[in-house]
């Protein structure tokens, strides 16, 4: 259902390659998605797929994970889905460090509804509800790390092989893993901000990204940092809860 050249298919492809490389038993995989262009991916995938309400995918997934901890759960969300309406659930899933893999398709706008501004629309850029330039945006990696996520990584749809690896590493991290996939929207955001066609936007990512490991030495102002931004193990929520309630008797 995605528009011609939309990056959502690329991120979905990356997710599928990661799943295949991890060789997980498919009956142990669940895809939970919110509402928006990217979240419709759930409807195309032959797993146990749960297409929830806007902004609430992580909360649905929290309930599912608590009673089915053996499942590998991918929570697919858009940038607005995860960080605007879903912000409260994002910061608390992160705080809890519950073993969920949040795959955020960040296309910098609300795509499904036609290109409105989101908290991830770069300041000053245009969107249908920000005709005079978008307000201040924040950085998903910083929010994730500040609220406790034990794995936070970013790639763009240009860096697909990297994205595959980051998703795989995220799954291997026992805790809240955030993988932000910057994926341009050629129809909404691309047109309004004159970014050219899909190929041009992919190449823009190539020119404007920098591996996060290199950031200390080089001024990376305005560049997109890609790679693992944070990875530090911490007790996982459901395991901790199960341990603390072990052997509780009537």
């Amino acid at each position: 259902m995605w528009c011609s050249g939309c990056g959502n298919g690329l991120v979905t492809g990356s997710l599928l390659r990661a799943i295949e490389n991890l060789d997980i038993d498919t009956s142990k995989i669940a895809i939970v998605s919110g509402i928006g262009c990217s979240s419709r991916a759930a409807g195309y995938l032959n797993f146990q797929t749960l297409h929830t309400t806007h902004g609430r995918a992580l909360a649905f997934a929290t309930g599912l994970k608590m009673v089915r901890p053996e499942l590998t759960i991918f929570v697919i969300m858009g940038d607005g889905d995860a960080m605007a309406i879903g912000g409260n659930h994002f910061i608390h899933a992160s705080r809890r460090n519950i073993d969920l893999n949040a795959i955020i398709f960040n296309n910098n706008i609300y795509g499904m509804t036609g290109g409105q501004a989101s908290p991830l629309t770069p300041q000053g850029e245009k969107a249908t509800t920000a005709p005079y330039g978008a307000e201040r945006n924040f950085d998903i990696m910083k929010v994730a790390v500040a609220t406790g996520a034990t794995f936070a990584a970013r790639a763009t749809t240009y860096h697909l092989p990297l994205l595959d690896k980051l998703i795989e590493k995220g799954v291997k991290n026992k805790g809240f893993s955030v993988v932000e996939a910057l994926t341009y929207c050629p129809v909404g955001y691309g047109k309004l901000n004159k970014k050219g066609d899909a190929t041009a936007m992919l190449n823009w990512y190539k020119e404007n990204s920098i591996p996060v490991e290199k950031c200390t030495t080089v001024d990376h102002e305005g560049k997109i940092t890609v790679g693992i931004h944070h990875h530090q193990a911490a007790p996982e929520f459901v395991e901790e809860y199960t341990r603390r309630t072990q052997g509780v008797k009537r």
């Binding site: 995605w2 050249g5 939309c6 690329l10 295949e20 092989p161």
Partner: peptide, 27 residues
């Protein structure tokens, strides 16, 4: 194949690619 957002192009004759492609697409 990798950069097609719609899984519309695939490389036959690429032995491992072919296997992996079928595995991914047709599951």
């Amino acid at each position: 194949e990798i950069y097609c957002p719609d899984f519309a192009i695939s490389l036959g004759g690429l032995t491992d690619g072919a296997d992996r492609k079928d595995k991914v697409i047709s599951r």
